[in-house]
Amino acid sequence: MDNQILAILIVVVQIYCIAFFTNILASRIFSLQFLLVFGLFLATIGTILFVTIGYFALVFILLSLVVALKVKGKSFFIALITPLTTILLLVIISYCIDVFTVSFLHMDTALSENGIAFNMIYFVALIFLAYSASVILEHLFRTKIYKRINRANGIMLIVALLVIVVTMYVFIYIESLYDFPIAII
């Protein structure tokens, strides 16, 4: 029972992270009140979808963020790129933390293997690193070089990010289907 509550808490924290870090990458277009209410909406529906359909709940979260960014006046390119970049960023940072924990600390990152304290430390590290990376990326998004790339190769960038994110989540989904050991994942 504790693992189920912890798993739901982790899903909710990750959904809020996606919403907040997407906002940072989109030049903080949403107010804090909007983010809290919208995050609650995403967390509620996203958690229900995650329990029922697994990782495919991410599609709902991404589409909701794209619509919200588009309604706030962002271009379709920015509305699509920022949530995808946030997801990619969170996955990469999560994998880096996992590699560090497994390689250097010789600990398994599975929920059942570690206590609540370890998982909270894990997510504080994830949030801190993802926040730092989001702020750095947001700064890079404002540069002239990025804006030139944005105009010239926007479609290719969207396609590349979609392929990367879909491939990563398909691998995660396949790994969970076949119950690979957590160290291999």
Rank of each mutant, 00 (worst) to 15 (best):
L177F: 03
T143Y: 09
T167E: 00
I174L: 11
I164W: 00
N153P: 03
G154W: 00
N153Q: 10
L157R: 09
F171S: 04
R151G: 14
Y169L: 10
H139W: 15
V170A: 04
M168P: 01
I182F: 06
D179G: 01
N153S: 12
T167Y: 04
T143Q: 04
Y173W: 09
I158T: 15
A183K: 09
S176H: 01
R151Y: 11
V163W: 09
R151A: 14
V159F: 08
L162I: 10
S176T: 04
A160R: 11
L137G: 07
A183R: 10
V135N: 07
I172N: 04
Y146C: 01
K144E: 15
Y169M: 07
V163K: 07
I155K: 13
T167W: 01
N150L: 14
R151T: 10
I164H: 01
D179A: 00
A152Q: 14
R151P: 02
L157D: 13
M156N: 08
F141Y: 14
L140V: 08
I174E: 07
Y173M: 06
L140T: 03
V170L: 06
I174V: 14
K144D: 15
K147W: 10
E175D: 03
A160P: 12
N150R: 09
I182E: 01
F171A: 05
V166N: 05
L162N: 08
G154T: 01
D179Y: 00
L137V: 09
P181C: 02
P181I: 05
L157T: 15
E175V: 00
N150P: 02
Y169W: 12
N153T: 08
M156G: 13
I174P: 03
Y169H: 12
I158M: 13
R142W: 12
F171K: 05
A152H: 08
N153A: 12
I145W: 09
E138H: 12
V135C: 06
R148N: 14
T167F: 07
F171E: 11
Y169I: 05
V166K: 00
D179S: 02
E138C: 11
I158S: 14
E138L: 04
A160F: 15
F171Y: 12
V135F: 04
S176C: 00
Y169E: 12
N153F: 09
